[in-house]
């Protein structure tokens, strides 16, 4: 055999390599880490791990950006992108009480997506956002049902 196998000399399980179980669960930083970095610096080393777990549940994925008023607000979504942004923007613009809605991803290396909503009197930006989210959800329901129907029809048509 041309290739020397150094591992062969060692006991089967005790290679000097990292044991598989100890390897990190993912190469990607967990999303909450982005947020907890600043916090961790102030923590005692021993507490850091525990705090991190607590923080995990409190990661806030939507926040209101400064300078917002009830009828004109900007929201920042964490870990969202064009997938949600464009569909949401479209459906919010369908709301006749909404004067303006747009979305942006300010920087490609930050997993953040901003949505700007300006409404007419009678509703607030946050209500429009919530309604938008529910409307996309309803739209998903309809398309999902239609797809299942179409699929059943197709199968029935193919077998008959």
């Amino acid at each position: 055999m041309p290739r020397a196998k150094t591992r062969k000399e060692e006991p089967v399980e005790a290679g000097s390599d990292t044991v598989m179980e100890e390897a990190p669960t993912s190469h990607q930083p967990e999303s909450r880490d982005d947020m907890s970095v600043d916090q961790d610096e102030n923590d005692e080393a021993g507490e850091a791990e525990e705090d991190e777990i607590e923080e995990e549940e409190e990661v806030q994925r939507v926040r209101l950006l400064p300078g917002s008023t009830p009828t004109a607000a900007s929201f920042e979504f964490l870990n969202e992108g064009h997938t949600l942004g464009n569909a949401l923007r479209y459906i919010i613009m369908k709301n006749p009480d909404v004067e303006f809605c747009a979305y942006a991803i300010p920087h490609p290396s930050e997993a953040k997506m901003n949505v700007r909503i300006q409404t007419f009197e009678g509703t607030t930006a946050i209500e429009a956002l919530e309604k938008g989210l529910r409307d996309v959800q309803d739209l998903c329901d309809v398309v999902s049902d239609k797809f299942i129907d179409a699929r059943e029809k197709f199968v029935a048509g193919a077998s008959s």
Binding site: Q60, R61, V62, F77, E80, T83, L84, I126, L129, E130, L133, R134, V136, Q137, C140, D141, V143, S144, F147
Partner: peptide, 16 residues
């Protein structure tokens, strides 16, 4: 579609 709905449900829940 389900993933998209879960995404939305999570955000609606958070807003609520």
């Amino acid at each position: 579609i389900k993933v998209l709905q879960q995404k939305l449900a999570g955000l609606i829940h958070e807003l609520a």
